[in-house]
Design a protein around this nucleic acid. Structure first.
Length: 373
DNA sequence: CACGCGTGGAC
DNA sequence: TGTCCAAGCGT
């Protein structure tokens, strides 16, 4: 059993930081200690892989190079910059925090972990990351990597999906973290978690800290971290209405309290709710039912046809959507005064933030089979 | 506390 | 195909 004495801790820090000095990744947000750069990168990296983030980060910094620019940006431009990254509340919260910083903090960053957590969107992990990397505070930054690395090093059996467990890891890391180089220490743990100590296909035999890894020495790597299984996504069914008018396609902005808030999609009809209201719905009555439902909301008359294309499937964290396309082409421009949406021509598509679901819908619609008579 | 919230990569 | 994972947070 490894004894984590002061000497062991020192040796661990030396091995870890020595390896990091020689092998750390050159990432765009590692070029300085600017808290704005660290912050943006940490928000983007939440539940998102490094390779995905890099181009988004570069573009975001060109568009919004400072807290001030971020605070002043139009929301649609922010969402467009975030398009495809997912968890879109991250960027809306980031703008709120930027405004908070300017108005309530006179533009000066709080430099402690607890102070940073006052900003919306900054939780215990991100606060620890900014405090340690930008402000050299000896604070733990417990993300998925830290959970995996330290659960294996110390054979910690607590379920990492339970909120209580974070405190156990923070206590352990506070004892082990380098007081001289806390930011590098935390980043070294992340690089370790992305190289030798990955979740799958790890290579602990060549890890710079293998002699400190109890689970490796015991042949018990596969037992850590302990994590309860997540629930399966629930199936949901929708109809997407592709309505082409002389001026362009109809789009709707998702409400701020629902999935994909404030992003743009074709108008969507809840198929499960429809089935509840009309239990005896069949293929013949489907079109008319949806038409009347859409007309009741928007006063727009349509003549919808099922599109000859596969049902679009899209899985979110907790929901699996099955979306059936229906389309119509209106000869006259409809009165849109009761339609809570927008018309967009193909050229205007680039200005609206599309979730991946909408990209799939558009693609399926473009590839639809043209029926020949 | 448990749950909602996106997406893409790896296998 | 499905499943799990990736620098989590707000409610």
């Amino acid at each position: 059993m490894i004894e984590w004495s002061k000497t062991t801790i020192k040796e661990f820090q030396t091995s870890l930081l020595g390896w990091y000095d020689e092998n750390h990744r050159d990432l765009p947000w590692r070029h300085d200690q600017d808290p704005y750069h660290i912050w943006v990168s940490e928000i983007m990296l939440q539940q998102t892989q490094v390779n995905t983030v890099i181009p988004y980060y570069e573009r975001f910094m060109r568009l919004f190079p400072s807290v001030e620019k971020l605070a002043q940006a139009p929301e649609e431009q922010l969402l467009k910059a975030w398009e495809g990254l997912g968890y879109y509340s991250r960027v809306r919260n980031m703008q709120r925090a930027a405004q908070q910083l300017l108005q309530d903090y006179d533009g000066k960053w709080p430099q402690t972990k607890t102070g940073l957590q006052e900003l919306v969107g900054i939780g215990p992990y991100t606060a620890g990351a900014i405090a340690s990397i930008a402000f050299n505070q000896p604070e733990p930054a417990v993300d998925g990597n830290a959970f995996r690395v330290f659960s294996q090093l110390l054979e910690i059996e607590a379920d990492i999906t339970k909120p209580q467990t974070r405190g156990i890891f923070e206590t352990v890391i506070r004892k082990i973290i380098s007081k001289d180089r806390p930011g590098d220490f935390n980043q070294a743990i992340m690089d370790l978690g992305a190289s030798f100590m990955t979740a799958k296909n790890s290579d602990n035999a060549h890890s710079p800290v293998r002699q400190f890894n109890q689970a490796y020495l015991d042949g018990r790597l596969d037992e850590f971290p302990v994590r309860s299984k997540r629930l399966k996504p629930v199936d949901k069914h929708y109809f997407a209405l592709v309505i082409k008018t002389p001026q362009g396609y109809l789009f709707q902005q998702r409400a701020s309290n629902e999935l994909l808030a404030k992003l743009w999609t074709f108008p969507l009809i809840d198929g499960d709710k429809l089935k509840e209201e009309y239990p005896d719905l069949n293929e013949d009555t489907l079109s008319k039912t949806i038409e009347s439902k859409f007309a009741a909301e928007t006063e727009i008359k349509t003549d919808l046809q099922l599109v000859d294309a596969p049902v679009v499937k899209h899985t979110f964290t907790h929901q699996k959507w099955h979306v059936t396309l229906m389309s119509t082409e209106l000869q006259d421009q409809p009165d849109l005064s009761h339609f809570a949406g927008q018309i967009a021509n193909v050229e205007q598509f680039t200005t609206l933030a599309w979730p991946t679901l909408q990209k799939k819908l558009w693609s399926a619609y473009q590839k639809r089979q043209i029926k020949l008579f």
